[in-house]
Amino acid sequence: MERFTRLEAIALPFPLSNIDTDQVVPARFLKKLRRDGFGQYLFNDLRFQSDGSENPEFPLNRPAYRSARIIVAGANFGCGSSREAAVWALHDYGFRAAIAPSFGDIFFNNSLKNGLLPIVLPPAVVLGLLSFLRASPGQRVSVDLPAQLVTLPDGSTCGFEVDAFAKECLVYGLDELEYTLSRLDEIVKFENAYKAKRLDV
């Protein structure tokens, strides 16, 4: 997996709650191939008008935010469908971190597996950050994963929680599947004991 240690980047304010993954990438693009990239479909129906031209109102289309790599959103970001393409779209566009008061559970897990760091900060901090970023577009936020610390544009810092295993995978670019396969013996042992108890398969 792609490594994540530290990142300092422009932050895009996306001050809406309950942004579902159907908004992040509409279902009609899910039949596309992973290797062709999903960045072009990110927020498709918000970012583009029906004739395919850019919607000038959409923040990501404003020059100040075009190269944003951190998205700051309202509560329950990424709720709804389990489509991992929502994470691929953000990732392929260039995003590497998402900050919100809470995330959809499946989206949160998918993010960690694709080098997009989901960061939960207290609602008041996110609210303050959102209004700051909207008032002065193009401001940078920095994220230090080993230290579990976000530095806001005003210089203040805020710690965040991250699961130790997920952190290890991100910081060292480890692959979860490889790790699991290295413990196959334990799985086989469990399976044998389990089969002896259960009658289903």
Partner: peptide
């Protein structure tokens, strides 16, 4: 519960999930 594509591949390969 629902899982993402990477997790689907993990389950296919190991029959387990973190």
């Amino acid at each position: 519960f629902g899982i993402g594509a990477t997790e689907v591949s993990h389950v296919l390969a190991t029959q387990t999930l973190w």
